[in-house]
Amino acid sequence: MLDLLFPAVAFASEGAAEGAAEGGLAATLGSVYPNPAVIWPTWVAFLILFFLLWKFAFPAILSMLDARAERIRESLEKAEETKVEAERMLEEYKKQLAEARGEAAKVIEQGRKVAETMKDEIIAKANEEAAQIIAKAHEALEAEKRAVVAELQGEVAQLSVAVASKLIGEKLSAEDHAKLIEQYVAEVGGLNDN
């Protein structure tokens, strides 16, 4: 039963019995015998692989890993820089935009003011012109009126003289006529002035 549980022991003890006959350490130790037929080929295999990895494989792979890590680090740094730069530019553009908006508002305000003053000026000028025209028209009217009145006075005087002459003949001298007329005109003119 012990043989069942510990096959290595079983084999070893089995081997021990034979080992006495064959006299080999290999047979005595069984599975736990460090067999030289395995030891030295393992050393050779190890040394070959070690040389290959040490001289060729690992330098190439490790330098690739380092180069890639360096590249990734650089890229991340660059990305960070770019981000900061972009944020700075965005901030600048926002400021510029705000400035431009302010500028535009100012320009519009100014324009409005200019237009306003121009409008006022134009209206004032128009008013003035209109007043002038009206004044001129008044003057012309007044002059016309005066002329008409003067003419009328002349005609009335002549008519009166003619009528009076006819009525009273030639009794009144020219001087008397004139006096009479002026008196009359003054009366009439006085009426007319009102």
């Binding site: 290999a26 069984g30 067999n35 080929p41 290959l52 494989a57």
Partner: peptide, 30 residues
């Protein structure tokens, strides 16, 4: 019984050499 001579090509060594060759090929390729 187990091999007693040190210069016998054993089952373990053959499979060890297969493993060695595999690692070598992989490493050289990569």
């Amino acid at each position: 019984g187990p091999v007693t001579g040190p210069f016998v090509l054993t089952n373990y060594v053959v499979w060890g050499l297969i493993a060695l060759a595999t690692v070598m090929v992989l490493m050289i390729v990569v």
